[in-house]
Design a protein around this nucleic acid. Structure first.
Lengths: 223, 223
DNA sequence: CTTGCTGTTGACGGTCCGCCAACAAGCTAC
DNA sequence: GTAGCTTGTTGGCGGACCGTCAACAGCAAG
């Protein structure tokens, strides 16, 4: 009588299924906090049995980690051109690029990047920190600041700190709208410039054995 | 025979009990992520029945909120003296104060402040954002920058962004040890100075109807 | 149609949490 | 001292969520 008796569920290649689940999970984690997204919700969203999530991703936390990873590892800025020009020009360009990429990802990025994670989970922090480190290294390279490897760790740490400023500023811009894009651009550019131009040299100076007045005004009578 | 038959549990004043539970909760939330601290753990730590937590604090999340609140609302810097002096002096002093207070709270502060929260929970974010706002307002006031109320919102937003830099820098310092205290001091001071000195005036300039070259170098031939 | 591989399901056991009726610590009155 | 009352505290019930695993079924090969 009924010609097809359409099967109750369709069989997919593992990669397809994984991808589909990952998309649904990313959407849900983007609009609700981790604790309020149950695996049942994700499974229902994907039209799939709940056990399948564990089969493909293990723990719920692992699935979340995959989502975070995907959101953080964005296309790099190596695509940009040679980047010659003044320091200010290069800084402005890199800031511009960063704001662009974030603007496309929108709220999901903010939700994941912010305090929007699972919370102090070492694994999650490792992932985010890793992504921050990549961004920091890229920015340094982008600015043409391949300094000696000795102080590289500290410079990277500085850039990770700067990443904190970037995230907070972006949150102000995307979420609250308390800052316009121009405001964000201005703030991030000026800060990055002062870090590269004033902090890094003084850092090298501090690193030297003889350090007397490292924090001296130095540009004191300027304004 | 036994003279007292000591009662199985002691009866405390509500405020005392609340305080005791809050302390234990703060300790546990400081050393483990939210999801891995069960109410059973807290109750056991406090030597109390689990149901009592709900009786005093409602949801587990509410208890966590209380902990966060306590950790964030630190003694203000109004205790400091009159604060006259150059901009750099005031900035250095406020940064110093911030680093001091954080140093005393140590890891728990970092755990709570960082992405160490419950995760994208609107309520938690509101609390943290509120605390950030207080810190921002205090810093502005501390620096003697009581600007007109019109652009106050944007200045506050800027200072909240700066707070992101502060937190990230402190994390680098406290946790990884990738930055020394001197590094943190230097980075935060320079950034704050450039924001107050260069960004704010340009902001006001942007706000004006006519804006031509708001992001012009302005302090160009300096180094 | 039958067989077999494997993607998928559904239920079981365990943990965690919010709620609430019952219990008992300790003060008061007699 | 003891009966009684107030209320801080307990312990268990019901529900939600999650990880695991044996059984099931889509679907291609023979």
């Amino acid at each position: 009588m009924s010609p097809a008796l359409s099967p109750r569920w369709k069989r997919l290649e593992p990669d397809e299924r994984r991808e589909q689940i990952l998309e649904c999970a990313a959407r849900l984690f983007g609009e609700r906090p981790y604790a309020e997204v149950s695996t049942t919700d994700i499974a229902k969203e994907a039209g799939v049995a709940r056990g399948l999530l564990n089969h493909y991703f293990g723990q719920k936390r692992d699935l979340y980690l995959k989502v975070v990873k995907r959101m953080l590892l964005m296309p790099g800025l190596e695509a940009s051109v040679t980047m010659t020009g003044t320091l200010r020009e290069r800084v402005e360009k890199s800031v511009e690029w960063y704001l662009d990429t974030v603007a496309t990802h929108g709220k999901t990025y903010v939700a994941v990047t912010g305090m929007g994670g699972i919370g102090a989970d070492p694994e999650v922090e490792r992932i985010i920190s890793e992504a921050d480190d990549v961004a920091a290294a890229r920015t340094l390279e982008f600015l043409g600041l391949k300094i000696e490897v000795g102080s590289d760790a500290r410079h990277r740490a500085m850039m990770r700190s700067y990443g904190g400023l970037v995230k907070a500023t972006i949150r102000e811009w995307i979420r609250g709208g308390t800052l316009s894009r121009e405001d964000a651009h201005l703030l991030l550019s000026e800060a990055l410039i002062v870090i590269v131009r004033d902090v890094f040299p003084q850092l090298a100076q501090q690193a030297a054995p003889a350090r007397g007045e490292a924090r001296a005004p130095k540009s004191g009578p300027k304004r």
